[in-house]
Simulated scan of single mutants.
Amino acid sequence: MVRRILLGTLTLIALAFAVIVISVVQFDVPREELVGQYAGGASQFVTLPSGASAHMRDEGNPDGPVLVLIHGSNASLHTWEPWVAELGDSYRIVSMDLPGHGLTGRVPGDDYTREGMADFVGELMDVLNVDRFAIAGNSMGGGVAAQYTLEHPGRISALILVDSAGIPVERKEEDVPLAFRLARMPVVSNVMRYVLPRSVVEEGVRKVFVDQSKVTDEMVSRYFDLSLHEGNRDATRMRFRSYASRDEEAFAARLGEIEVPVLVIWGDKDGLIPVSAAHEFKKRIPQAELAIFENVGHVPMEEVPEASAAAVRDFLASALAASSSTSPASPPAGAAVNEGGEAVPEAVE
């Protein structure tokens, strides 16, 4: 009798454990299963010389100055949709999913460093035959944008840093999304390769907004689904490992080399990268202009799109007018850009 009860109890425990495992274990999802939901409208896939298949969008005014938008860590080009809507009347806007993100996924060579991502941006702009452009980046993407500007100053007409990485900062651990904290732990990050509760993703998304009404189920689902894109979690682990060897102070020390017009946009309630970093960017890049928004978090382009885009519009109008160089003519959005088959953007239906 006791043995039967014990066996029954163990069976129930095993079943409960199996249910828990099934509910949290998440396998990679092939790109083909995500394209229909997240690659609509202007989305295209471009095969770069490095072999990467870049998910990108080329939108807005095909005859306007080019503005390139670089998203942050674990985000995607979708984060820029509000700015595309606000600025697309005047600018040709190119956005992309960086390596290890969104629908681009894992790339040949597995280079997910800041330098590698800047090279990726340059490859894409070469394929599009865009020689000169303004560039904006949020968070990790701001560091990538600054890196590209430092390495290719002749191609950049203006730089916009939105709650940008690149300055060593101190932050409260509780302000950092749990997913980021877990990704920094060697053993735990290996477990996260297969175990990713949706609640962890939602917590991370909510952390970057002050106005919680901006966080929708659709937004959380997109972040969660794209994190499961085949290869993205492996890429995230490699990327976070590369942070350990990165000398952020050495990078910050180079910021004074930037000579183009710079706009620094920040949310004053950003817990992930505090607003003190905005003032440090200004200190290191004297010509930088500051636009700080009250009661806003880490992603002003999504939380206050109208106000932040208006700041960008005013800044670019002045910066581009003052530029001594003119942008070479670029092909219209979505046009074939070379005579080789692989480098031509392929529209997604």
Rank of each mutant, 00 (worst) to 15 (best):
P197G: 07
G116N: 06
V84R: 00
V19C: 12
A244I: 10
A52G: 12
G109V: 04
S327M: 14
L128R: 10
A321C: 12
M125N: 08
V29A: 07
N138L: 03
V348H: 07
G271H: 01
T149W: 00
T113H: 09
Y38P: 02
L7H: 13
Y91T: 03
S325K: 14
A307K: 12
M125H: 07
G137L: 01
L228F: 08
R206Y: 00
V275S: 08
I22V: 15
R171N: 06
G340Q: 14
P168S: 06
I93T: 01
D131T: 12
E174K: 11
V220S: 03
P108Q: 14
G41K: 08
R92D: 02
G36S: 11
D111F: 01
S308P: 05
V187P: 09
T79K: 01
Q37S: 15
D268C: 01
P177D: 04
D247A: 06
L128G: 03
Q212T: 02
V215I: 07
G141D: 08
E259H: 10
G231K: 02
V220Q: 05
W83L: 00
A18D: 08
E280T: 13
S76C: 05
I160K: 02
V144I: 13
G88L: 02
G341D: 15
I285H: 00
V188P: 05
G72T: 00
S330T: 07
R171M: 07
F315M: 09
T216V: 11
G72N: 01
Q44H: 12
S327L: 09
T79I: 11
L320C: 10
L320A: 07
N138W: 00
F17I: 14
T149Y: 02
A54D: 02
G64N: 07
P65G: 07
D89I: 06
E294I: 10
R3T: 10
E202A: 09
A244R: 13
T216K: 05
V208Y: 00
E302D: 08
M301N: 04
V191D: 10
L15G: 13
E81H: 07
D110N: 15
A309N: 11
M140C: 05
D126W: 06
A322H: 09
D97V: 03
V176F: 04
D111R: 03
S276E: 15
G105N: 04
V25R: 15
R233K: 15
S330H: 09
N138G: 04
S325G: 09
G154Q: 13
E173T: 15
V130N: 03
D314P: 09
P177M: 01
D131S: 14
A165L: 09
V210Y: 01
G51R: 10
R132K: 15
N295Y: 10
G142F: 00
E248W: 14
S43P: 06
R241I: 05
V169N: 08
L34I: 11
E289I: 06
A42Y: 06
